[in-house]
């Protein structure tokens, strides 16, 4: 069998799995549909009860508020579909973008600086993937530790403070966060482009299909000739790149980067969106569309609650309860054998 044949076999295998899943739709609704329905119900509820909620302006605001979360989540989704987890994402996002802001005071060109920042993010991604694939440390601990190291190195070597600010003349850069194109703010556009690219990558390319195979059954994937270790590294690189893009978007939006964001609950929000959208943590399932749906539900909830002037702590409690429900539903829809589970398999 040639490599091409093997690849086709793998593709057929995951396509079969897909059609199998489609059959399941008839029997019980997929999580994606449930979430979409919930989002619609919430939307209608807020639209009726809150004045100004359903306006075009507010919808754009809502999309904009979830753009960064959405970019991070699409990156995370790739890793999770490959049965991994990337807790270092926020750290990479904060340090790479803050470093870019710091470098902008030097006389390097913006393009060079951007490549440096992206390069830093990719190095952390490769490190993550290498530790997970070759040393075989469970991704949970590997990425937790690399997150600490990345943040520490940033604070120690790359940055001079907790916050980083762009110099005064940085219109090109700030356009990425504050510009408006075709009536849509740049962050929303960036989110849509990232989501679209990753969607096509996952669904239409051989490597993308291989990531599903990797997450579904790593041993089987290895047996049919997929080089699983480089593939694992690739997923973490994609996640790190998404983190970099999200960081740049954030920094350009508020013209500063607060690296203390690492100690926030942002990474939990990312996991929330991913799990909510039906990307099972046991790997091999879900897609970018589900992630976008999950992000929109979170966006609607947060936007509505903010307008209602609900305390941010209550918002957090609401988020936690929603996430818990999503995990329970995930468990019901995709039961797994906890007797064969390994630690770090979430």
């Amino acid at each position: 069998m040639s490599r091409q044949d093997l690849a086709e076999t793998a593709e057929n295998a995951s396509l079969n799995q897909n059609s199998y899943a489609k059959k399941g739709w008839l029997k019980k609704p997929s999580q994606e549909l449930i979430v979409l329905a919930t989002a619609l119900v919430c939307f209608l509820f807020f639209a009726v009860t809150l004045t100004g909620f359903a306006s075009f302006g507010n919808l754009v605001t809502m999309l904009r508020s979830i753009a960064v979360l959405g970019i991070l989540s699409t990156g995370m989704a790739v890793v999770v579909i490959g049965r991994g987890l990337d807790l270092s994402q926020v750290s990479v996002m904060a340090i790479s973008s803050a470093w870019v802001l710091t470098l902008m005071s030097s006389d390097m060109s913006l393009v060079t600086i951007m490549f440096l920042g992206l390069g830093f993010a990719l190095v952390v991604g490769i490190l993550n993937g290498w530790i997970v694939a070759f040393i075989e440390i469970p991704p949970l601990f590997a990425t937790l530790a690399t997150g600490l190291v990345c943040f520490g190195v940033g604070r120690w070597v790359l940055l001079s403070g907790v916050h980083a600010y762009p110099p005064k003349e940085a219109a090109d850069f700030l356009f990425l966060g504050q510009g408006i194109v075709f009536g849509l703010p740049m962050p929303v556009l960036i989110f849509l482009v990232v989501a679209g690219v990753i969607h096509v990558f996952l669904r239409r390319t051989t490597i993308g299909r291989h990531i599903y195979g990797l997450g579904d059954n790593i041993l089987a994937a290895r047996l049919i000739g997929i080089s699983v270790r480089p593939l694992i590294i690739l997923t973490y690189m994609i996640s790190a790149a998404a983190a970099f893009i999200a960081g740049i978007t954030t920094a350009a939006t508020v013209a500063s980067m607060n690296t203390e964001i690492v100690n926030s609950t942002l990474i939990f929000d990312v996991l929330l969106v991913v799990v909510l959208g039906g990307v099972s943590l046991s790997g091999g399932r879900g897609g970018i569309v589900s992630v976008v749906v999950g992000a929109i539900l979170i966006g609607i909830l947060l936007n509505g609650m903010t307008i209602l002037n609900i305390n941010s702590d209550v918002q957090n409690i609401a988020k936690a309860v929603v996430l818990l429900a999503a995990i329970i539903v995930d468990r019901r829809l995709h039961p797994k054998d906890e007797e064969t589970d390994k630690q770090g398999d979430h």
């Binding site: 809150l50 004045t51 100004g52 909620f53 306006s55 302006g57 507010n58 605001t61 809502m62 904009r64 508020s65 960064v68 954030t250 939006t253 508020v254 500063s256 607060n258 203390e260 964001i261 926030s264 947060l302 936007n303 903010t306 307008i307 002037n309 305390n311 941010s312 702590d313």
Partner: peptide, 24 residues
Amino acid sequence: IVNDQAAQWDATKAHDITAAVLQQ
């Protein structure tokens, strides 16, 4: 006072809160 929320010292959160408040 139409809104009184905590942004946890985070400019991004302050941004999102203010954007939502302005819509309303």
